[in-house]
Structure formats: C-alpha cells, structure tokens
C-alpha cells in the first residue's frame, strides 16, 4: 500500500512539473506582457520617467531573458537577480497589474476556491448516489424518466446560464441572495455564526450550478453499472432466498457498481474546477476565476500563471485522491499496482 501511494505521488509531482512548463508556455504565447505593454503606452504618451521604472521591473523579474531561463527562474530552479527565489522557495511572483505579491492576492481566495469545489463534489455525490440507485432499481418508471430528464437538462445547459436563471428565480421566489460571497454588512467583520450562515446561503446556488452537469453524468453511469449488476444471477438467487429488497440492492450490487463511481472523482475534478472558474465570474464570487480572467486579459503573466498552475494542481490532487480511494476500496487494483511496480 505504501509503495502504491509513493508511486502515485511521484507520478503526480512529475505531471505537475510538466503542467507547469505547459502553463508557462501558454501564458507567454501572446507577444509582450503587462510591463512591455505599459512601456509602449508610456512611450506614446511621452512619459520618460515611467519607462525607466518599467525597464527596472523587467530587469528585476528577468523578463528580458530567454523563455526557458525565465521558466527556471519562475519555478526557482535557476538563480534570478535575487538568487534562487521562485515557486519552489515559496515565492509565488509579483502581480504587475495590482502591484502586490501574487501570494497576497491569491491567499484570500485560494481557500474559497477549494471550499467551493469541495462543496460541489459533495453535492454531486449526495445527489447522484440516491438518484442513480433509484433510477436503476425502478428502471423505466416515471422516477427514472424524471431523473434522466434532469440529467439531460444538466448536460445540455451551459452552466453559466443555469447560474443566471437560478439567480434570477432564486432571488425572486426564494429570497436566495444574488452574487457575492456574503451579505454586504458582514464584509470585513470577524467570523461569527451569522457571517458563517450568510456565506452558507450564498454558496447554495454556486454549488448546485457547478455540480448539476457532473451529477447528471455520474448518475447516468451509476444507473448503467447498477443495472448490469442487478441482472446477474446472484441477485436472482438472493431474491429466491428471500433477502428483503433494500438489502438485496445495497449489500452487493451497489458495492460492485460503486467502483467506477469512486474512479469518477478523477474525471470530475477538471470539470468541477472549470465550472467553478466560470461560475465565479458570473456570480462575482471572490474565487480564483475572476482573477484569472482579469490577469489573462492584461497579460499579468505571473498572476495568471500561478492561478492556472493552482487549478491544475487541484485537479491533479482530485485524481490522486480518487486513485487512493479506489485502491483502499478495491484490493484488486492495489494488488495489480504492486505487481506492476
């Protein structure tokens, strides 16, 4: 088991390194960056003093070096002007646009991003497990049709639209607050019960919206798997021996069908993270989504680079967790891993 864990973790770290290189290439694709754009702007308006300051910024963040050197300096594997000082050393870089360290900007929001994604994941499983099971047991009944109808709607509606509609009707009929993370009056207040409740009610809509399409997909897969399992002879034997209906489903078939269910966490992670970025922009949630969009627009490369790396890391972590859970739940996978090692 420990060897399995170790192997998985090492793979994940290597993947993360590859992803970081990829991310760095992507954010440097557009010609120029925030500082060089500033310089061009100041040149055209004739501000000589500003140009010098910006040129110093370029030197300080070694933006004049070749791309591969910039990358190594960024992750902290090569010495920059201030020595080894990159991601590996805990320095997340400098946001040119906000003129603050990236760590400071991200620190306020990264936690919330994780919370929103976790909440969405919980929602997916809480909804998909019972609905998928019922849909399989009562296949082709009205409850199955309603479940698949909801599933298809979740599949086909772009989730930002779902957000808009839910905000619209939620605010009108259920008094669910619109946008933001908490009611205005709690901003800047110390954490208390009321503030906590306010945050909780504000998280309802984003969680449902982010989770719906994923829940639909998981539900459909669970239904298919469980139906395969229910058709097997051992279920019939159990029925013949008089095992009560609920036990008959839950004891063995559901456990068998649960395996792909757990493996899905890995597939869901990228989807949920994508969704949360989108939804945060629509609903003005203070997560990494709006920051990413803004920094991409202004070519604030260290900012967007770190956010991209962070969300990719989040999905990788999700995959790692699903692998580990799967190994814990299913000895066959664990043993196969040992043989392969």
């Amino acid at each position: 088991m420990i060897r399995f864990l170790l192997r998985r973790t090492v793979t994940m770290v290597l993947t993360l390194v590859a992803v970081s290189a990829l991310v760095f290439i992507i954010i440097n694709l557009p010609p120029g960056n925030y500082v060089s754009n500033q310089i061009a702007e100041m040149r055209s308006s004739g501000e000589a003093a500003g140009v010098e300051r910006a040129a110093a910024l370029i030197k300080e963040h070694s933006l004049d070096r070749p791309l591969w050197e910039q990358y190594l300096i960024w992750i902290g594997a090569a010495p920059g002007p201030a020595g080894f000082n990159g991601l590996l050393q805990g320095n997340l870089g400098w946001s040119f646009e906000l003129a603050r360290p990236v760590a400071e900007v991200v620190g306020e929001t990264a936690g919330l991003t994780v919370i929103v994604n976790l909440a969405a994941l919980m929602f997916v499983y809480l909804v998909a497990l019972p609905l998928g099971t019922i849909a399989a047991v009562r296949a082709n009944s009205w409850i199955d049709y309603i479940a698949s109808l909801i599933g298809y709607i979740g599949l086909a509606t772009p989730n930002f639209l779902l957000a808009l509609i839910m905000l619209f009707y939620g605010a009108r009929y259920f008094d669910i607050p619109i946008g933001g993370l908490m009611a205005r009056e709690y901003e800047g207040e110390p954490m208390g019960w009321d503030k906590f409740l306010s945050i909780l009610t504000h998280l309802i809509v984003p969680t449902i919206v982010i989770g719906t399409s994923a829940a639909a997909a998981v539900m459909r897969r669970l239904r298919a798997n469980l139906m395969d399992e229910l058709n097997k002879p051992y279920v019939e034997t159990a029925k013949a021996k008089g095992v009560p209906p609920v036990t008959r489903v839950v004891r063995y078939p559901l456990r068998m069908a649960l395996n792909p269910f757990v493996a899905d966490i890995g597939n869901l992670a990228p989807q949920l993270v994508s969704g949360s970025v989108m939804i945060s922009v629509v609903m003005s949630l203070p997560t990494l989504g709006p920051i990413l969009l803004q920094s991409l627009r202004s070519q604030d490369i260290f900012m967007s680079g770190f956010v991209l790396l962070f969300v990719s890391g989040l999905t990788l972590l999700g995959m790692l967790i699903s692998d580990i859970l799967l190994a814990v739940l299913d000895p066959r996978i664990r043993l196969a891993g040992r043989e392969g090692a």
Partner: peptide, 24 residues
C-alpha cells in the same frame, strides 16, 4: 501515454481561456 495523462488532467476552461487570450 504520459502526454495523454498530462492533457487529461488539465482543467479545460481555464486553459481554453488562456489560449484564446493569446489570439492576436
């Protein structure tokens, strides 16, 4: 296979956003 694993683990939307921001 490595490349497949790496690309599969990327969250689609943020990467799409980054790439389309790079369109001149």
């Amino acid at each position: 296979s490595r490349a497949i694993e790496i690309f599969r683990s990327l969250p689609e939307l943020p990467i799409w956003l980054a790439l389309s921001a790079a369109v001149p």
